[in-house]
Design a protein around this nucleic acid. Structure first.
Length: 282
DNA sequence: AACTTACGCAACCGCCTTGCG
DNA sequence: GCGCAAGGCGGTTGCGTAAGT
């Protein structure tokens, strides 16, 4: 659209489609990005910062639309992106947040540091919708929602829990949690922090959602029971933890973070799917 | 080994919202 | 208040590749 002149715009026909044709005529590049283009964009954003994407596109000498540059930056070039499989914790968080917010991918993505809305959206489509298809029900149906709540999510919690009961080798432990960027106080953003506590007696997970503006807070332990979780501290732009929660030392066992083979489909089997279909009265 | 199918992901599309003059 | 431009977001598509036959 960047190649469109202002005179081309009107509410009814300012669609990208129209401009897209114009883009083609003016030679705006589409399709996969080259390493050279990536480097140009990266350098330009490093200098000028994010935003004003049309300007970035031209400043970088890229024959791309601002939109395309923005997308490439957010989904691929951003330095704080996390790579690799969606972890069990992240899977659980996605399910919880989707049941709460629906297809608000960007909102959900804000709660998974380093993950993009596109990534989460793709995950949902390829994994979760596949399960719904397997169960022969709509992904938005009550049946599937119940299946998620009563079978899938508890099962995920079990898997997370059982994974963590393995003796944690020192080498497998890291204090480096995934980069968490807390929103500044003036940002009306939600923030969810997935934490795992490993202590000598017990461990748990607290999914805490804090909305600064309303002090809305939600958290749960591994069984989904509410917990008095961490609280948002607007003045300090940070999360403070409740000392009452297990109190153990906090760590991210590497095995939990990078466990890629424990995909959602592994939590299901035909027997369970059949059982659910019976129980939920398909 | 060749072909087909399924899957995952990057990128695009189109609509909506926001900010600004 | 209105219109324009840019940004944001959810939905969709297309392509490369792994898996299956």
């Amino acid at each position: 659209m960047g190649a469109c002149t202002p005179s081309q715009f009107s509410p009814s026909w300012m669609s990208d489609d129209v401009c897209g044709e114009e883009d083609q005529l003016l030679g705006v590049k589409k399709g996969p990005w080259t390493e050279e283009e990536d480097a140009l964009l990266f350098n330009c954003v490093s200098v000028y910062g994010e935003g004003r994407w049309n300007s970035i596109a031209s400043l970088a000498g890229l024959n791309r639309t601002g939109k395309s540059c923005r997308l490439r930056w957010l989904n691929y070039l951003r330095p704080d992106l996390r790579r690799g499989n969606i972890t069990l914790q992240e899977q659980l968080l996605i399910l919880e947040l989707h049941s709460r917010w629906g297809s608000r991918w960007s909102k959900i993505a804000q709660c998974l540091p380093g993950r993009t809305d596109n990534e989460i959206k793709n995950y949902w489509r390829t994994r979760v919708q596949k399960q719904a298809k397997k169960m022969k029900c709509d992904v938005n149906s009550k049946q599937f929602g119940d299946a998620m709540r009563f079978v899938w999510m508890p099962r995920l919690r079990e898997r997370i829990e059982s994974s963590s009961t393995e003796p944690i080798k020192t080498s497998a432990c890291t204090t480096d949690r995934p980069a968490v960027s807390y929103p500044t106080p003036n940002q009306a953003a939600y923030q969810v922090v997935g934490k795992s506590w490993s202590g000598s007696m017990d461990w748990g997970i607290c999914w805490e959602i804090t909305e600064p503006s309303s002090s809305l807070s939600y958290s749960s332990d591994t069984q989904g029971a509410p917990l008095a979780g961490a609280t948002w501290d607007p003045s300090g732009s940070c999360c403070t933890e409740s000392s009452s929660i297990n109190g153990g030392q906090r760590s991210w066992p590497e095995g939990l973070i990078d466990e890629g083979d424990l995909m959602l489909e592994n939590l299901w089997n035909d027997e369970k799917t059949w059982f659910l279909q019976q129980q939920l009265g398909e």
